[in-house]
């Protein structure tokens, strides 16, 4: 059993404590927007925020978390899907297959919260997510567009 603060609500999840947060979110909390890509923190498809920091949920056991830590998933990033990153993504048609995009968006949102006007180098450092379809240049453009629109964090 784990008690976690997910998208603003404290939820009790019937899960073994060594279970990675990714699978607690997907299978117990029913939040399937966060994806499994590799299970070894290599691809970033599982990226969520913990207290505003982008982390890879596939290697984070729920035993490492408690209800004081605020977990935010793609479903909780904005109330209406209109976080500036999401808006920019739609305006530029960033996603292709879309499977990596929850992780991309969460990594980009965390970057912008800490660095409202990131340089290309800031983006290179923060965005290590893998996209097999090849959306990188549009992801970069999307981050700059969201930044230009003003991110307050």
């Amino acid at each position: 059993m784990a008690k976690l603060n997910v998208n603003g609500a404290v939820v009790e999840l019937d899960v073994a404590t060594e279970t990675p947060l990714l699978w607690a979110l997907r299978d117990q909390a029913g939040l399937t927007g966060t994806k499994y890509g590799c299970g070894i923190a290599a691809c970033g498809a599982c990226t969520v925020h913990i207290d505003g920091q982008a982390i890879r949920s596939c290697i984070t056991p729920v035993s490492a978390l408690d209800e004081s830590q605020k977990i935010v998933t793609i479903e909780g990033l904005s109330p209406d899907g209109n976080h500036p990153v999401q808006v920019a993504w739609r305006e530029l048609d960033v996603p292709q297959c879309g499977f990596c995009q929850s992780g991309m968006i969460m990594a980009a949102a965390a970057l912008l919260a800490q660095t409202p006007r990131p340089t290309d180098e800031d983006i290179n450092v923060a965005m290590s997510n893998i996209c097999r379809c090849g959306t990188y240049n549009r992801v970069r453009a999307g981050i700059h567009k969201a930044a230009a629109g003003g991110i307050t964090g």
């Binding site: 997907r26 399937t32 966060t34 994806k35 479903e75 999401q86 993504w89 048609d93 879309g98 968006i105």
Partner: peptide, 21 residues
């Protein structure tokens, strides 16, 4: 034309095979 399927890919709401319940 903008893609018809972008919006759901920005909110995590698109259901892929691995998300089926």
């Amino acid at each position: 034309k903008p893609r018809l399927d972008t919006a759901a890919k920005t909110t995590g709401s698109l259901i892929y095979g691995s998300d089926l319940k």
